[in-house]
Design a binder for these strands. Structure first.
Lengths: 312, 312
DNA sequence: CTACGGAGACAACCGTTGGTTGTGGATCGT
DNA sequence: ACGATCCACAACCAACGGTTGTCTCCGTAG
């Protein structure tokens, strides 16, 4: 099926005549005739009944018309999602399971009319993400933990966006499995496993400092075999636990029976920052930044902890 | 833009390789390569980054992918809306402004997953509508007022579906404009205008009988120039009034300030019937008939009036 | 380091499609 | 009955989309 044929069908339906549809589309009447004939042949039904003064929708045509319009709308959104001349707001996230992705989802549900595309830049470091923001590949990027305070060159701006509250994730056999909530000192006796958080990354530094400050045993070493493996091991272990953000989205089978346990007094938070171009006039970007500010302002005021260098 | 190209893009994205997409689509790898190249050329961006072991989504590809999937879904629905082999439930209504259309809309909102097409058969009489039900052009048809009691041949079934309660529609200058509600005897002093309801139709007979039974002055004569004209005249008149169904949808400018006034003790109702094939196994049809029964059962139990011959 | 396997691109070829112009048949209003 | 209008059909041509055959590139194994 060809989108142009569908567009032609809609044009004929609106105009009531092949002729006017042809004028509107900038082709000859004969071309319109052939397009409609081809579309009808492909679908195996006749969509229009030809009369002496134009064309009228057949019953099948009536049924098809709203779907045809929807198809054109979706097609137009599809091309609008893509450079050059893209119109959809495009935001980069490191990972579709963490709080920024959840915040984008919430924003989308609040403003379903705003076209929004969530992407993940292939090269994960901050420099290339900033380059992508600069050249317009993305409108904004979420970066984790720290932003150089006052650090980016001219048109680039950055701001703290989300403080995602940590929770402890444990399986049903873990000693803390049934705690309603807990404090950081409660965790001293337990092993916290954060595979893949290498010490030379900002995340590694974050967990190093968290562990040092509260005397925790956080294993950031060891290769990560992916989230699924981690969840699988957690489910069966009486010792393993890990930290996850409240706003993160992990799915596991019901049978795993994992529990998320809030941490309080203080609640350690993941600080997520947003980076964008100050001179980007996309109206949806302004709306999204405002949304982030609102969300941040309306967050519950609990005592939180973050490393001094991550404060913005 | 070609839907096949989009389908190919999604196949490559899912399979991770041109080769497997080609196998899945039953074409050669070269054809897939050309399709993708053409799609990228049309869009003006590169969607896939080619690697030694297949293809990965580019940033634009990531943004495009969900729209591509949506496009395929809509396209599939579009072909499913049309015979032969159509899957969407197709219901005929005489008029998109009356209660059956409203009921269909409500049903759609209750079951957004059920594909539903509302059409209007070009030839309005009952016989051709029954023929359309018989040959599968539509799954069901709403017909007004009366159904031959026990009247249709073998596979055709009919049932009372909706009793749409009458309301008086008047402009702000009308003497009854500020009534909270009224009874049929209240209307005796006023002229009720129902243009286009010829006496030889079932509707004409209905209003004849309503007028005779309650001593009303219902003008069913005169040509109808359409609903818009009627509403326009009502808005400005201190005498004209007309009857409309509570479930009907008429739109008018705010400045018209028309009022719908309920009629009680008894409330005259428009009886709408539904006609379908008993051996139509479409699951959505069963759901819709059940919905109609439920709606009817949960309607407020007020005293209603309808001609004896219209009772089911 | 080289050789191999697998993946996608390119070239050449060809049938089909989709566009054009020109023309014909049907229908409605005058 | 005639003219105007509208859509379909025919003929022609360029462009597209498919195929087969071949090439280049890259990761990996030996």
């Amino acid at each position: 099926m060809d989108v142009e044929a569908v567009r032609t069908f809609v044009a004929v339906s609106d105009g009531g005549q092949f002729r006017v549809a042809a004028d509107e589309l900038g082709v000859t009447q004969q071309a319109v005739s052939k397009r409609i004939a081809a579309l009808e042949r492909n679908l195996g039904v006749s969509l229009l009944v030809r009369t002496a003064r134009g064309a009228r929708l057949s019953v099948d045509g009536q049924a098809f018309l709203p779907h045809a319009r929807e198809l054109l709308r979706v097609a137009s959104r599809a091309v609008g999602s893509v450079r050059p001349g893209r119109t959809a707001l495009r935001i980069d996230v490191l990972n579709r399971r963490t709080a920024p992705a959840t915040a984008l989802h919430a924003f989308h549900r609040l403003h379903p009319d705003i076209e929004l595309d969530v992407v993940t830049l292939p090269d994960a470091d901050v420099a290339s993400a900033v380059a992508a923001v600069l050249d317009g590949t993305v409108d904004a990027t979420f970066r984790a933990v720290a932003t150089p305070s006052g650090g980016f060159a001219a048109p680039i701006r950055a701001a703290h966006a989300i403080d995602d509250r940590h929770q402890l994730l444990v399986g049903p056999k873990h000693p803390l499995a049934n705690a309603a909530n807990l404090t950081l000192p409660d965790l001293r006796a337990h092993r916290i496993w954060m595979p893949g958080m290498r010490a030379d990354t900002e995340w590694g530094a974050y967990y190093d400092e968290l562990g040092r400050e509260f005397g925790l045993r956080i294993d950031t070493v060891g290769p990560s075999f992916g989230v699924d493996v981690l969840l699988d091991e957690l489910a069966d272990s009486a010792e393993l636990s890990t930290l996850v953000g409240e706003g993160s989205r992990y799915l596991w089978p019901e049978s795993y029976d994992l529990r998320r346990i809030p941490i309080v007094d203080p609640t350690p938070v993941y600080p997520h920052s947003i980076i964008w171009r100050d001179d980007n006039t996309h109206p949806a970007l302004a709306a999204f930044l405002e949304h982030l500010r609102t969300m941040r302002a309306s967050a519950p005021t609990v005592r939180t902890w973050a490393p001094a260098w991550a404060e913005g």
